[in-house]
Amino acid sequence: MNWNRKDLLGLRELSAEEINFILETADAFKQVGTREIKKVPALRGKTLINFFVEPSTRTRTSFELAAFRLSADVINISASTSSLTKGETLKDTARNLEALHADILILRHSSAGAPQFLAQRLKSSVINAGDGAHEHPTQGLLDMYTIREKRGNIRGLHVVIVGDILFSRVARSNIFGLTKMGARVTLVGPSTLVPREFEKLGVSVSHKIDEVLPDADVVNLLRIQHERQRKEYFPGIGEYTTLFGLTKERAKFLKPDCLVMHPGPINRGVEIDSEVADGLQSVILDQVTNGLAVRMAVLYLCGGIAT
């Protein structure tokens, strides 16, 4: 396959072949992490700007480390340190960054579509690191990479995604990616946060976790985003845990080879019990390690093509 995208905006627009190509490329970069010298010269001389208008630690750090391992130079800009607070528009900020000859722009933004807006206007590569409730493509890719690594394949597996689907970009990227790769996806959560509308995306919707868990090959628990919750949507923490939390009692109903995933940061005791998060079926830390490999692959592919 010949990769020809300068940007990664979402998994919705990628083909199964392209997703597979990214995952295979990530295999090679995962191996780099086991070497004595964990650094390759592939993006030497390129400049990457981590532009995070919304706070993030793990995604920004992961992109930063991925860029270091590819020998790119990295600058971090966060919302509080940028001139957005002085009233500069997103486009002007980005054009200024491009005038500094930035080759790759990693953007996290609270508005859906912000990365696409910039990708159409800039020569630089634009990588979406999460835009509003729209997509978080590298998270979707690292989740799929982890499933493929642990289970050998994605096709035919039943993946259950639990939580606040309505406001979750992680869920959307997973839904687009997993359905393309041939997985069966069931979304679980309160009807306010998991409306039936989602069935149009080719997935099942359930409001009863206990009916779904015994048939799951993968359970992906989304973080309850306190900062986004409003009373009318959300039942309350205690009630949520009672109805949808992966407690240690519920975990007994999982198949022995079912994977337990979480994009982090974990609210222990809310969406998942500590015993389950740290248990044998948990691949939560594998997801973190794999995120680095997947982001190296994405930076190599989007940042490495001739412009």
């Binding site: 191996q31 010269p41 190599y300 490495g304 001739a306």
Partner: peptide
């Protein structure tokens, strides 16, 4: 694998495909 160690990434029309080293 040599693809990620080449000195011409970004200058060729086709990006070299990386393989797992072992």
């Amino acid at each position: 694998d040599v693809a990620m160690h080449r000195d011409d990434v970004g200058t060729r029309p086709e990006l070299p495909v990386v393989h797992v080293s072992n």
